[in-house]
Amino acid sequence: MPDLTLDELARILRDCAGEGESAGRDGEFADLPFTDLGYDSVAILETAARLKQEYGVVLTDDEVMEIGTPGRLLELARRQIAGAS
């Protein structure tokens, strides 16, 4: 299973839910709330489904709703990926 990078997560978000309202994918992107980036709860659910398909990451609906930012999502996902390998 390949490591998940922030760029890769940004790509998945774009694939699932379209280009966000903030184009920047630098450090700032990681810490901006999904809502500020233009991604609503359905967009995050869709992204979580893709993370499961591609990386085997399993997040509960409650976890998904509380994640808040791309950086937090990346952290949770990478912890699971590391734990599995």
């Binding site: 774009r14 694939d15 280009e19």
Partner: peptide, 8 residues
């Protein structure tokens, strides 16, 4: 349309 609207 904005990119956000296309997948949905």
């Amino acid at each position: 349309l904005p990119g956000r609207l296309v997948p949905q």
